[in-house]
Simulated assay, not measured.
Amino acid sequence: MNMKRVGVMTFHQALNYGAVLQAYGLQRFIEEQFEECQVEIIDYRCEKLTADYRPIKLSLNPHRWKRCLASIRNYQITKKMQDNFDEFNSKWLALSEKRYNKNNIKDSNTKYDLFITGSDQVWDPRCAGFDENYFLTFVRDQQKKTSYAASMDKMVIPDNMVEAFKNRLINFYSLSCREQAGAQLVEKLTGRLDVTVNIDPTFLLSKGEWEKVAAAPMFENYLLIYPVGKSMEMVQYAKRIAKDRKLKIVYLDADKGWKDPDITFISGVGPEEYLGLIRHADCIVTNAFHGTAFSIIYHKDFYVYCGSNGKGNERVQNLFKSFEIQNRILSSKNQLVTKTDWDSVDRHIAAERERALKYLKSVIER
């Protein structure tokens, strides 16, 4: 039997734990389930992402001076983080031998029998500068163009991008989004009624599979704060929980721009250490999608900050709805209930995993 060569387009180069780990999750799942497949992460270098994650961000724009100064201050942390991510990618990701950019990405047409774009926010108008290559516009054969659990942040496309968004997706062989709202948006804009909703790739692997990746414990008896951005309201929630449970606070932060004597800050660690920090925490407070995802996978006592009114963070809210998880959103109205029916959650995950397998079989085994 001839091997089917599958190329995955995703944000593997980002200095973002969720982006890299979801890439590994999809790669590993396909490897496990489809013996006749050779799957690679296409080592595509997006100009916008490359610029966003430069250790030092120089700019003549006076509105970006603070960002420039912060990047200089955090240079050593960013460099350490980059080294750790490069090491992880080299060890765990099946990267294409050739490195691609916008000028030579068309060369990959002769390399792969199938292209999958996703997961993560590959179709978000802002994340990668609306880079058309994450929409597989370089792929010549429409029958080779598929997505898996592609996502957006706000589930809104600016008016001046609607036509381009529609034209980029309308001729895909198959379309899969991560959120129902994203699927509805794609269906509305393209007129297609065949968009599938599939689970984030991090859920495609079992807790045992992630145990093989996670690093050893770094701390004991701690509450982990894993933020996207900085929210002092979230920190105050975490302090109250930690005090009540007599836990130290560990804050995983890429920006050492502030200090707090009650908090142990940790920066620059790689994806393996990130997984280990979640795995061994006694409690987790986060506002990140993948911080939430791995808290669920590991059956942790965790709480998610969704804004002051508790109604933001649509991607996390969608996750909670899918798994019927309640009382995990930080709000002045919610009591911190620590009981979750993990057996029920695991059944939901198993069902979604089967759904994902069925979808991937439909695009790989045809």
Rank of each mutant, 00 (worst) to 15 (best):
N2M: 11
R5K: 14
R5P: 00
V6M: 09
V6D: 09
G7F: 09
V8M: 15
T10C: 03
L21T: 02
L26Q: 07
Q27N: 03
Q27F: 00
E35D: 14
K66G: 11
L69G: 04
A70E: 14
Q76F: 11
I77V: 12
F88K: 11
F88N: 11
N89P: 01
S90I: 06
R99P: 00
S108F: 01
I116C: 09
D124G: 05
P125Q: 13
R126T: 15
A128S: 15
A128I: 05
E132A: 04
E132H: 08
Y134P: 11
T137L: 01
K145H: 07
K145T: 13
T146S: 11
A149R: 00
S151M: 10
P158N: 09
R178P: 07
R178S: 03
A181S: 07
L185M: 04
R192M: 02
D194Y: 15
D200Y: 03
E220K: 13
Y226W: 08
M234H: 05
Y237P: 08
Y251W: 12
P261C: 00
Y274L: 08
Y298S: 14
Y305Q: 02
G307E: 06
N318F: 06
L319Y: 02
F320H: 06
I325H: 02
S332M: 12
T340H: 06
T340Q: 14
S344Q: 15
R347F: 04
E354K: 15
R355Q: 00
I364Q: 12
